[in-house]
Structure formats: C-alpha cells, structure tokens
Design a protein around this nucleic acid. Structure first.
Lengths: 228, 228
DNA sequence: TTTTCTATCTATAAACC
DNA sequence: TGGTTTATAGATAGAAA
C-alpha cells in the first residue's frame, strides 16, 4: 500500500511475500491490540506462518488468549456458526445490500431524468405528455433548485467583497417570480452540463444560449415511464 | 489516527467508542483477509462486541461474500452544482457496479441452493426432478467438497501433534470411496449450518442424525429453476 | 443513529544499505 | 536476509447532513 497499489492476490515472489508477511503481521497485531484497548473488547488473532507450526497469537499473555479461546470454544457450535458459517445469513445481508444499492441507483436515475426534463423544457423543448405524478416530481425538483439559487443569492447579498459575475449579469433585485427563462438558465447552469465554457465570449449575452446546441447535446427520447 | 491522534486508551464516550469499534473492526477484518490472501497463510480473528455474545470471526465460510460486499462502496454522491455533464457517466458507472454486485449475489445464491440440495439429498430426501444442468452443477459442488475434505485429511495425516476431534470421531484410515453418508455429513458439517449441536448426545453415534430435523430446519421447496 | 466527507494519521511497497 | 528510509496507499477521527 505504498509506492504502488498492490494487487490483492498471492504474492508469487518468495522473499517479497515473506517480507510482506512479516510487516503485515506486525501491523495486524498492533491493530488488534489497539481495538481491544480503545473499545475494551475481547479480541484475538491467530496467524500461522507459512512454515511455522506455531502461530503468532494476540494477546500474547497466555491467560488472556486462553480466555478468549475458551470462551469461543465453549460456546455451542451453533452460535459460532451463526456468524462465521451461516451462509444464509450472509446471503441475506448481501442481498439486502444489493437491493439497497439498486434503490439508491434508481432514485438517482429518476432524479437525473427529471433534471434533464427540466433543462430541456426550460430550453424551449415541448413538455412531453407526462403524467401528473411526473409533473409533481418535476415540481419538486424545480422547487429545490429555486431554493438552492435563492440561498446562494441571499448568501451573496451579505458579502461585500467579491461579487460573482452572475450577479452582475442578472441583477439580484429581480424577484424570483420574475426571473426569465434565460436567467434561470444562467443561474442553474452556473456549472453547465456541457462545454458551454468553450462557447464564444458573447455566450452569456442573453437570448438563446443553446442556439448552438442543447444542454445534453442531443434529444434523447424521454424515458417511457414519463408518459401516460 | 485522523484529524487528531488518538490516545491509546479506553474511549469513555459511549457513541464514539461504538463508532470506532465498528470502523476498526471492519478495517481489521479486511487486514486479516488481505494477509491471508497475499501471503497464503491461515489466519483467524475473533472479536467480541461489547454486548454481543457472538463474536465476529474471520474467516467466514463464504469469505468472499463478506469482504467483497463490505468493500463495496456506493458511488460518490453527485454534486449538482458541479459538472452536470458527468452525471450520465457517473450513473452508468453506478449501474454497472450494481449489476456486478447482483451477478455475484446470484452466483452465490445459486451455489447456496446447490449446497442445500446436496445436504438434503444426502440426508435421504428424494432428489427432486432437476434438469441435467443442475445435476452437473451439483456434481461440481460435491466434487469440490470432496476435494476439500481429502486435502484436509491428507494434511492431518502428516501431522503428529494435535489431532482434531473430528478425526477421533471418524477415523482417517477410511478410504474416501468407503465414506458413508453419515461420515460425509460429519465431515462436511464440521461446522454445521444449524442447530444440530442441540441434538441428543447420541447425535454422532451414526444412523439417521437428522431424524429429529433436517439440516436447515425446514423443507423449503426447491427453487423453481431447479426443475425441468 | 447512520452515512458521507475529508483532513490527518498510519501502514507499508519499494528503494536503499 | 534483515534493518532504515521515503513516497504513497489506506485507515480513520471528527464533523456535518
């Protein structure tokens, strides 16, 4: 884990492996002792060397080690197996984790699609014939954006030093209700989706900022579930 | 070891201690698995939680499942204010990660089901009318188990010191070809999936060990895809 | 409480001796 | 082969959401 990221696989080189073993064993033992000290828990580590039939063990104090091991051994095997051997449990754990990930991903996808919908609509594209549900969600997204912008503006008002270009261009006195489409675009696209930065200097002058291209570079059809 | 160097002593603050415990336990387990992988040695860690009578243990049988799944981190959250253009890319990345996880999980599920199939069949339950594909896969699982057992026995033969209880019970002289069903069960169930330990003392005496119950406690129907 | 973020601290792979 | 050094990967404390 230094100089180079090591691949997690058996180290073929003999001496390198032995060196690593030595270093890491030491580090591991230290970690075990730290965990035990810091959190006041019983812990035990047993490491068999490649040749040595006698493992390195922590805690080094024989009595402590013995106590941990005795406790472990005396426990009905059934309980031991619950955590170390119960495949079913681990599987369930894994499955719910994946499910969780999936849900998160789906939420993100949905949000992304809504954001795209917003940008494209603001850019003059016709709002597709989406269901009310989608409209409500879209409303939520837009509200969130507005809120974020308002906060940013409020924050800037209290500042006496740097006045961001954005403010010079749009004027903060404008009421939120009166913000026009291109102002919206300017505000929201403060960090624009694509290479707007590479647009000519006159880019921000007003008018149809995306005359040269749409925010996402193409007109991907709206996802099917957006429609009735 | 971050933000501030922590003093090596019992952490008095309750929630802080729990948080540290969780983090460090995870880190420790990872280290153990890494050491084991990189250097090809046997290693074991046992950690008792403050309350939990069940320790966390490494290795866990489906070792990959645990470490791989915990290692899996959700993709960094999208920063709306920055680089909208990357959203799509980030999403794709996240999706493929989830997909990958899902595949892994499915492989594990399948393997688990096959293992259950094996145990239940060995226990005398009728082999369901599975397709050839499943049969072949089952064959593979069984072969793997046999190989593992053979290796264990071979290893033990070369040892003059400690003779594990398992050996006392079964006798290593027995040829693999002659191993009977209950021996199989003993060997494979060395750390049994469920409550067999609570069986009467005569449990290991031979005969129908699972007369009072099946290994998994119930007769869950075989998964649909096992059948023709 | 959990999750996420990130500044810092620690472990360690290579290089050197 | 075994210590010492150094640059970097990894672990994690504390804060914030």
């Amino acid at each position: 884990m230094a100089r180079k990221k090591v691949k997690l696989a058996w180290i073929a080189n003999d001496s390198a492996r032995r060196a690593t073993f030595k270093k890491r064993k030491k580090g591991l033992m230290k970690k075990v002792s730290e965990l035990s000290t810091l959190c006041g828990v019983e812990a035990c580590a047993i490491i068999y060397g490649p040749e040595d039939p006698q493992p390195d063990v922590w805690p080094s104090s024989p009595s402590d080690a013995h106590s941990v091991l005795t406790r472990f051994k005396s426990m009905p095997e059934m309980e031991q197996s619950k955590k170390m051997m119960n495949q079913e449990g681990l599987l369930r754990q894994g499955i719910s984790k994946v499910k969780e990930q999936l849900k998160k991903q789906q939420r993100e996808n949905h949000n992304f699609e809504l954001t795209q919908l917003m940008y494209r609509t603001l850019n003059g594209e016709a709002l597709p014939d989406v269901g009310t549900e989608v409209l409500h969600a879209l409303e939520g997204v837009i509200e969130e954006k507005m809120k974020a912008i308002q906060e940013r503006i409020d924050g800037l008002r209290g500042t006496t030093s740097v006045t961001p270009i954005l403010i010079n261009r749009t004027g903060v006195k404008m009421e939120m209700e009166a913000i026009q489409r291109q102002k919206w675009l300017e505000a929201m696209m403060n960090n624009p989706p694509h290479e707007q930065q590479h647009q000519p200097a006159g880019y921000y002058g007003g008018g149809n900022e995306f005359a040269n291209g749409v925010p996402y570079g193409d007109h991907t059809p709206w996802p099917n579930h957006f429609y009735h």
